[in-house]
Write a protein that binds this DNA or RNA. Structure first.
Lengths: 196, 196, 196, 196
DNA sequence: ACGTAAGCGAGACGGTACGTCGCGTCTTACC
DNA sequence: GGTAAGACGCGACGTACCGTCTCGCTTACGT
């Protein structure tokens, strides 16, 4: 399990990849909660005991898979493009490269706590974006508390993403980014700034 | 066998109530996904086979419990107060009477599909509210599609509700309704109406 | 449950008769061991809880049914005709009147211990017959012990009876009685009397 | 996965043996019909689910156990010693090596159909013995049909065996074989041959 | 290139929960 | 008072998955 200069045994890499692919496939078909380790290994054509050599359980598999996808994401997109509009588009393009994966972790197919886990990570990114854009947020007792606003906006963001991925004929990243910004700019200006 | 039609056997009502209470308790403690029928019946001090005489499985129990709560809700609140501000407050007050129940079905503790089920129902209510308030919505190709907005706003609404219920020292329904309206009024005006 | 001058409640008699008939029918169809109280009551169109008002369980029902048949038997045939050949024929004729009942208690369809119970009772009769016919039996260390001989002969007798009842085209009681006597006369003379 | 073809996993052999032993023990104590899979596995100190990996149910376990005993029997005794007197004694000696087993399958403790199953197998052996000894059997309408005689004699044989095994101070195989032959020789000569 | 340590397939095993079924007891209403 | 209807606690059933564990085979790696 330890990497000697980053290169692992070919068989290990093959097995892990097969299992991760199978995970996504089976999750798309019957949902994460309903799926068993057997389902995954049957699909991956890997022995069940081999699964346990690499992962603790299906949650661990998903966890590790998420992390690996994230590493790619961060390498390629960075901290969501430092709040630039182009950064958002890059992010969407990146997401479009693993549509099944994101559909799985975002949609109702995923187990609640895992989708929650993903949402929290994404929230940090999304909020970082807004915090960069509107750093001057102040707290006003008459206005909604900041964490209510954050939670609300982040959840809205994830739902929007999920909506985008579920479309049969998805709009382009550019188009969707445009809509997103309209939605959230409005929310942002109306909630982050003190009432005028 | 029916007694004065509609009034059920006392034992039956007792059993069902014990099971529903136990469900909520155990779900709060360890989450809906992780919980077994045995957990529920142990807590309710009801025999496991009695559980199956009333419900198909834990999902069915939750489903029926949700429906019963909803019936109460509709009787008492009606269609969310016909969009009146007081209607929203009534709704929140009603929700406050079953805090554990709503915490369960709204939070990550619930199974994804059930929380989804709840959200969809709640969405219809929330959206009905806004549609009454802003009936003049138009479709503009440059603006986000209506269903994207609906999904986004509804999801935000549910998250806000969840946030409210998770607070240790919850604000009053009046206070929270005020914040909600600020949040959503802003979103509504900025997304449902054509850009000015 | 107590009889006032031998006359019982009509409903009680009806219920008991329905249950006894149903018992025999269902036993013929699926065997005594495999059959449930529900099977019996369903067939008898009697409520299951009514069954328990009359019998402890299916064993009790069979037991009581056997006893009632036996009472009839003894009234009509007496102690197997006092060893007369005509007595055996009377017995067989009596048995022929309840073919399903005797098939059930004699054949492999019956639970072992009950068929055993029946066999023991029948054995007493059969052996009484031979003891009357050959009262001069003596014990000879070189010859089989008496109880071995009794068990063996009685078991053979029951098997023969079972064979007779299972035949599709049964021979007449007279014919069968003739065969029986040939079989057992030979056994009897060769085992009950000291070797000549 | 086969190791030297035919030799099974050590654990498998151990488990099966424990279960078979437990089956006999528990059957002796409370009878086959009354006994549950749990009883067996508790006694064998084997997990209940392991039981089902090897056997369909308790009937299957008994069935397979019987077959294995029979294989041993046939290897060691062959077709009941080709009708020789010594063959019968060999058979009895073999039976004496598994007294509990034979007590179980022969006595009323066994479920009717299984004891029946055993009797039929034994009958074939016993009858083969007599058919070899008295091959000149003829059919005479005045005499009992052959299959009636066979059934009768075989049943008597099994009962005799059961009697032998139930004795507290069993006679020797030689003594019992002698008695058996007396019993059955007499029956045989008097029923298989035409009346003189 | 090749010997060897690893990864792997196969599957036994002890657990635990499942959903079903039958049991025997009971309560209540009907007749 | 007998019966129908049926709730209930109890406990066995046979199935499914879980995570752990051996045990040989095979295969990629490192020298």
């Amino acid at each position: 399990m330890q990497k000697l200069d980053g290169v692992e045994d070919l068989r290990v890499r093959r097995t892990r990849k097969l299992l991760q692919q199978a995970l996504i496939e089976v999750t798309v078909e019957k949902g994460f909660a309903a799926l068993t380790v057997r389902d995954i290994t049957r699909r991956a054509m890997v022995n069940r005991s081999t699964f346990y050599r690499h992962y603790l359980d299906k949650y661990d598999l998903l966890e590790q898979h998420i992390n690996e996808i994230y590493e790619v994401l961060e390498e390629e997109v960075g901290i969501i493009g430092e709040g630039r509009h182009e950064g958002l588009i890059e992010l969407l393009k990146q997401i479009q490269q693993f549509p099944d994966f994101y559909r799985v972790v975002l949609s109702a197919k995923a187990d609640a706590f895992l989708s929650q886990r993903f949402r929290q990570q994404t929230q940090q990114r999304v909020l970082a974006y807004f915090q960069q854009t509107f750093p001057e947020a102040v707290s006003d007792p008459d206005r909604p508390p900041l964490d209510l606003k954050f939670t609300t906006v982040a959840s809205a963001g994830c739902s929007a993403l999920a909506w985008w991925l579920e479309q049969e004929q998805p709009s382009t990243p550019e188009q969707f980014a445009h809509w997103l910004q309209q939605l959230f700019y409005d929310i942002a200006v109306s909630t982050l700034k003190p009432k005028t």
